[in-house]
């Protein structure tokens, strides 16, 4: 169903191919800004917080790729508060498809793929420059971490949307979770205060998007000293985030249907 709706929207967008192409490019450039920023930082110094340019760009690539894919799939959900405020959610609820799918596919356009371009490009350039002890396991970890990161971000999109059922004006704050999470995971967590790193490990598990798996790929010690198992915990964490998000969504929808907001 999701694919069918997305395809219909895509066809609608494709009626203006030039505009669509330009927009995809523009989206790509906006997405590339963070990478340019990272390169500007490394114009001044070979290492920041113990990490080289290639390593930070590796983090950027995996994070941006995971976030980009999750944004394509579910990013539209952040407009939920707007739908509640304008009363348009009612129109979605009288249709036989989950409102989450309807909101997520709304205005689906290939231009969203523009974000993936700089992410994939940077990742492709960073990987061969990494000084990592490549083994089969480490090679396999790269696509696995992108997949798990995608699922974690997808869960965060849904969580952020669920919150808007109850706090209609909270969109501004939930951006901390989604866009903030995407920004944070572009950098090595060694940059941040220890308590903050604990927070994004145990409370909002952003550390499992790419940080913990990267410690394994790059063979680095964990500044928090967590056991090695943490480096492989991303799939389990992703499953937990999804479960929590599903419960939150159901609760939020039930709340809406009993209060009418």
């Amino acid at each position: 169903m999701y694919a069918l709706l997305a395809w219909t929207w895509t066809r609608a967008a494709a009626q203006y191919p030039v505009s669509m192409l330009l927009l995809s490019l523009a989206t790509a450039v906006v997405g590339a800004l963070d990478a340019v920023g990272i390169m500007l930082l490394f114009a001044h110094t070979p290492r920041i917080a113990g990490f080289t340019a290639a390593e930070v760009l590796f983090l950027y690539g995996t994070s941006a790729l995971a976030f980009g894919i999750s944004d394509i799939l579910l990013g539209g959900a952040e407009r939920l508060g707007q739908h509640v405020r304008e009363g348009t959610l009612d129109a979605l609820l009288v249709r036989p498809v989950s409102p989450l799918v309807q909101i997520a596919t709304e205005d689906f356009s290939p231009r969203r793929f523009g974000k993936l371009l700089p992410a994939a490009l940077v990742l492709g350039l960073a990987l061969p420059r990494l000084d990592a002890p490549w083994t089969a396991g480490r090679v396999a970890m790269v696509p696995l971490m992108v997949a798990c990161g995608t699922v974690i971000f997808a869960g965060l999109w849904v969580l952020a949307a669920s919150l808007q059922f109850v706090l209609v004006d909270s969109h501004g704050a939930t951006k901390s979770l989604t866009y903030g999470g995407a920004f944070l995971t572009q950098y090595p967590l060694t940059l941040f205060a220890r308590d903050f790193v604990r927070g994004v490990t145990f409370a909002v598990p952003l550390a499992f998007v790419n940080w913990q798996p990267s410690l394994y790929v790059l063979d680095r010690p964990d500044p928090l000293g967590l056991p090695d198992a943490a480096r492989f915990a991303a799939p389990a964490v992703a499953a937990v985030v999804c479960a929590v998000a599903a419960v939150a969504w159901r609760t939020g929808l039930r709340h809406y249907r009993s209060t009418g907001s």
């Binding site: 501004g172 704050a173 903030g180 920004f183 950098y187």
Partner: peptide, 16 residues
């Protein structure tokens, strides 16, 4: 809510 997000980003940028 917006100010909260501005602040969170402030912390991330400042740390970098």
């Amino acid at each position: 809510a917006e100010a909260l997000t501005n602040t969170v980003f402030g912390f991330i940028r400042a740390s970098v």
